[in-house]
Design a protein around this nucleic acid. Structure first.
Ligand code: FES
Ligand code: FES
Lengths: 150, 150
DNA sequence: GAAATTTCCGATTTGACTTATAGGAATACT
DNA sequence: AGTATTCCTATAAGTCAAATCGGAAATTTC
């Protein structure tokens, strides 16, 4: 599995929206300003997220986006699968397509299934809310650390 | 982390060589025939593996390749890192390069570090010997299963 | 209802990287 | 000498990610 820029932007935008949950609608330009993501590219991404039911949107003046579910009900795994496809690091794991001749009994494949499961274990458990907490926690711990130098 | 064709070919070739460990040298064409890998492409890959110290080679008539270490001393993680680079699914994890503005306290990044560790945990532990055993085990179990239909 | 604002949509470009091929040099055996 | 094999470099071809462009549709404001 490779997370592309697209996937990274999607995550960052969603985290941004999670941090502004229940604070009204947020426009593309707001996110662009805060997260430094190419605007037109982000546009496409948000539409995908919206069509998948993750976001709610409204057009025209005063329009914008907001999460369609609470941040603790959206997992990172869901996002990455939506934008970047299956979590498996090797094609033959997800797509039924044979890669080596003995796909059914392929030891390599079996290891990669383990890897996929391990990453899914993590990514399907961690939600946008968790990420916000992690960021907040790290920032606080960092602030504390800085205190000692005063 | 994305495993490319190159990485897949490398693994398959190494497993092939592991299965023929201590049976003398094995030529590129032998591997090509068995594993259905583009010959000239495999050539480049084997050279990389050789330069990294994983393989031993000999030129000329009767030449070929063989593992330079026992199959249980070569991990899949080592191979993939060599051919396809770092295991992290996100660039900002491995390269020090900042992706989002607050890299140091980035929650996304922290999750991806967890993912990298989880996959490293698996791939650094599984060796070529393990893969051979897995393949063999699955093939045997499959054969048993077939027996019931006779 | 006209104008402004914002999301929505499709096509296209650009560049980078993966994949593969080509041709020959170096080496070792017979 | 001749043959077989690995080694090396360049480059073609193909694929896909990343980004841009131009405009359509909807919504609010005046
Ligand atoms: S089936 Fe994918 S490498 Fe064997
Ligand atoms: S540092 Fe990579 S997404 Fe934040």
């Amino acid at each position: 599995m490779k997370i592309t820029r697209k996937g990274e932007y999607a995550m960052r935008a969603l985290v941004d929206l999670a941090q502004n949950y229940r604070k009204g609608l947020r426009q593309i330009q707001d996110i662009v300003r805060e997260e430094e993501i190419p605007g037109k590219f982000l546009e496409q991404i948000l539409i995908i997220l919206k069509n998948a039911g993750l976001l709610q949107s409204k057009r025209g003046i005063g329009g914008g986006y907001s999460l369609n579910r609470p941040p603790d009900k959206i997992s990172i795994g869901e996002v990455i699968r939506l934008i970047d496809g299956p979590l498996a690091p090797l094609g033959c794991v997800s797509s039924g397509h044979a890669s080596c001749s003995k796909e059914i009994t392929c030891g390599i494949r079996s290891v990669m299934v383990d890897v996929e499961n391990a990453t899914a274990e993590i990514l399907d458990r961690v939600t946008l809310a968790d990420i916000c907490n992690r960021t907040k926690g790290m920032a606080e711990r960092r602030a504390e650390y800085q205190m000692y130098y005063i």
